[in-house]
């Protein structure tokens, strides 16, 4: 991006698109377990996520471009998660929230938990914690914005 002398800015169309895209991420409410409550807290009064342009939590995969997988993904749930991910339009991003989603967490000795959601869908940002604090999720969203602006998410 360059600032011209005459007070106007020259940039490429793609830069504008990425800038707009990164500041209007519409998350898809994929709340599964404990972390979903923290995701709701991120949305609620104290840590208002709409400061980052993500206030519109859509309930339909077709209208959203970020999937925050919050909570343990079980084997019974994984095929449904995959189907919902397939229904989302491009470009789409995934945040894995919580250790259960990253590698099974405290449940990884068991028989019915998927050892990490990255076996099911590609993940852009991992947010560790059990559950991550809302601040951590906000940081994750900012990282994703950075990533979109640098066009690494493609």
């Amino acid at each position: 991006m360059k600032t011209g002398d005459a007070g106007f800015i020259t940039t490429t169309l793609e830069n504008v698109l990425e800038w707009g895209r990164s500041n209007s991420i519409w998350p898809f409410t994929f709340g599964l377990a404990c972390c979903a409550i923290e995701m709701m807290a991120t949305q609620a009064s104290r840590l208002d996520i709409s400061r980052f342009g993500s206030e519109v939590f859509r309930n339909s995969p077709r209208q959203s471009d970020l999937m925050i997988v919050s909570g343990t993904v079980t084997k019974k749930m994984a095929p449904r998660l995959k189907r919902l991910y397939d229904e989302m339009p491009y470009p789409k991003y995934v945040i894995a929230m919580g250790v259960c989603v990253i590698q099974g967490g405290p449940y990884n000795q068991g028989y019915s938990v998927v050892m990490g959601v990255d076996r099911v869908v590609p993940v852009d940002v991992y947010v560790p914690g059990c559950p991550p604090t809302p601040e951590a999720l906000t940081h994750g969203i900012m990282l994703l914005q950075d990533k979109i602006r640098k066009r690494e998410g493609k």
């Binding site: 749930m77 449904r80 449940y107 000795q109 068991g110 028989y111």
Partner: peptide
Amino acid sequence: GYLHRNAEKICELDYYCDSLIY
């Protein structure tokens, strides 16, 4: 059953004091 995380089985594999986190 979409959130069945086998907590009861894991508790059988852990010490009494460790089961608390589940």
